[in-house]
Structure formats: structure tokens, C-alpha cells
């Protein structure tokens, strides 16, 4: 197990390095740069700024310098605002993560619950209703759902105040963020639960005299959740790091928003910082998923 984790961490470092390499050179290949804005600057100022961010050097050298800096834990400052990259990511991530954690919890609880109900009530009306609603939510783009919720509940009914830095009402963004994963987990749980309910070992448990509740929650659910876990791990990573669309609609200043802005601004240090952060987060979540996978399914060997 320990050996496996060490191996995975080494692999992760290699993965992240490759991500950096590709991002750095692609980013530089996009026309324009952080200081080629509309506002005219004097050549001296331009040159000084470029020198400050090493932009006067060849791209290869820039990359090596950047890698050297991050190896020392220095992600630099934003080329737009001059603020520390790590501080910015930290504060933006907090907003996205808070929303994300709530959305993940909602999605998992709701998905497993309704998925199980649908499986147990197969072909009866609760199953049909649940499957209809979850199909609807898996095919509904989040910008449609988000705008819809915002119009109905904030504008028309006025039940929920729209998000603002002063009034951070998370209900609507969390709902729109959780809708797709919740619907997906519902369907995944249903399929998987039905599969497990038909297994011989469930019949064995009943034949032993185990009560029905325990048959479902201990013997069935644990097996049924194996495929769900494989989906939830990467989902956590993508939901926690912020959804651009949902953050835009609700004007939540999270990491997703920040990332897109940094790309539009050609804010090189910021792009790199966010990319590395996302890559590390994703790789870590995948590792955790694999470990959890091993914990619930002993047949998996971590090699």
C-alpha cells in the first residue's frame, strides 16, 4: 500500500510537469501577452514590465525559470493585479470549495437515496418519476437550469436573494451545480443496485435469516456503491474547483471564474498557477478514489 502510494505520487509529479510544459508553451503561443492591452504604455514601461516577468527572455528559458521558482514554492504575482498568485487562488478556492462541497454532499446523498428507491420500486411510479426527473437533469445544461432558478426564485418570487459578496446565498448555485451529478448518481445507483439485488449472495443473506433492512443496507448497498465511488472521486475534483458557467450566472467570484479571466487577460503567472492547482487537485482526488475503491472492494489490488 505504502509503496503504491509513493509510486503514484512520483507518477503524479511527472503528470503535473507535463501539464505545466504543455500549458506554458500553448499559453505563449496565443497571440498577445499580459501587457499588450489597449492602453498605450511608453516603451520604457513596457520593457520594464516585460523584464519584471521575464518576458524578454526566450520562451524555453522562461519555462526553466518558472519551474525553478515553483520548485521553491514561489508562484509569483499576477501580471494584472500584482497580487500573490497563491493568496488569490487560496481565497478564490475557498468560495468555490464551499459551494462545491455542499453540491457534492447534496448530489451523493440525493443520488444514492433516490437511486436506491428507484431500484427497490422498479417499474412502479416512484421509479418512473425518479428516472424521468434524473433524465431531465442530465440533459439540461447548467446555464439553462441556473438562469431558470435565478429567474424564478430570485427575480419572480423573490424567495432567495441573488448572490452578492455581502449576501452569500449559496442555495441556487449549489442546486444548479449539484443537479447533473445528482441525476447521474441516481441513475448509476439504480442500475448498480438492480444488478446487485439479482446476485446470488443477496439471496444467501436472505436465506441466512438476515432482516431485509440489513440485506439492503449492508449486503447490497456496499456492493452497489463500487461503481458510484469511481464516478464520485473525479466529480468532487471538478465540482470543487469551480464551474465557470454556474459562477458566471450567479456572479460568484470563485476559482472557475478567475481561471477564465486569467486566460482572457493573458495573465501568464495566474494561468500557470491555477492550472497547476487544478492538476494537483485532480491527481490527488484520483489517488484517493483508488484507495477508497480498494477499501470497499477487497478484490481490487493496488499495484
Amino acid at each position: 500500500m505504502f509503496k503504491y502510494i509513493v509510486k503514484r505520487i512520483l507518477l503524479a509529479i511527472a503528470t503535473i510537469f507535463i501539464v505545466c510544459l504543455i500549458t506554458f508553451f500553448t499559453m505563449n503561443a496565443i497571440p498577445g501577452g499580459p501587457f499588450s492591452g489597449e492602453k498605450a504604455k511608453s516603451p520604457e514601461v513596457q520593457a520594464a514590465l516585460e523584464k519584471r516577468f521575464n518576458l524578454d527572455k526566450p520562451v524555453g528559458e522562461q519555462f526553466l525559470l518558472y519551474m525553478k521558482n515553483i520548485a521553491h514554492g514561489d508562484f509569483g504575482v499576477s501580471a494584472k493585479t500584482g497580487r500573490e498568485i497563491s493568496a488569490t487562488i487560496n481565497s478564490k478556492f475557498k468560495v468555490s470549495a464551499k459551494m462545491g462541497i455542499l453540491a457534492v454532499l447534496l448530489a451523493v446523498v440525493e443520488g444514492v437515496f433516490f437511486g436506491s428507491i428507484a431500484a427497490l420500486q422498479r417499474n412502479k411510479w416512484p421509479d418512473r418519476v425518479i428516472i424521468f426527473v434524473s433524465t431531465l437533469f442530465t440533459s439540461l445544461p447548467s446555464f439553462v437550469l441556473g438562469s431558470f432558478l435565478l429567474v424564478i426564485f430570485s427575480v419572480k418570487l423573490g424567495w432567495v436573494q441573488a448572490w452578492s459578496p455581502q449576501h452569500q446565498s449559496l442555495i441556487l448555485p449549489v442546486l444548479s451545480l449539484a443537479a447533473y451529478p445528482a441525476a447521474y448518481i441516481t441513475r448509476l445507483t439504480k442500475t448498480s443496485m438492480l444488478d446487485v439485488l439479482g446476485q446470488d449472495y443477496v439471496r444467501t443473506a436472505r436465506a441466512k435469516g438476515v432482516r431485509e433492512g440489513k440485506v439492503l443496507f449492508v449486503h447490497t448497498l456496499r456492493n452497489a456503491l463500487i461503481p458510484v465511488v469511481t464516478y464520485v472521486g473525479p466529480m468532487i475534483a471538478s465540482v470543487l474547483t469551480g464551474s465557470l458557467v454556474v459562477e458566471q450566472i450567479f456572479t460568484v467570484g470563485g476559482l472557475g471564474n478567475e481561471f477564465v479571466q486569467s486566460i482572457t487577460n493573458r495573465d501568464y503567472p495566474m494561468i500557470m498557477g491555477v492550472t497547476i492547482f487544478l492538476a494537483v487537485f485532480m491527481v490527488t482526488m484520483n489517488l484517493i478514489t483508488d484507495i477508497v475503491y480498494k477499501l470497499i472492494d477487497p478484490r481490487i489490488t493496488l499495484e
Binding site: 449472495y201 443473506a205 449486503h219 456492493n223 472492494d297 477487497p298
Partner: peptide
């Protein structure tokens, strides 16, 4: 298939 794969 008669024994539950995830329990000892």
C-alpha cells in the same frame, strides 16, 4: 457467486 465478495 453465493458469497458476498466484499466481506470476509
Amino acid at each position: 457467486t453465493s458469497l458476498n465478495p466484499v466481506f470476509t
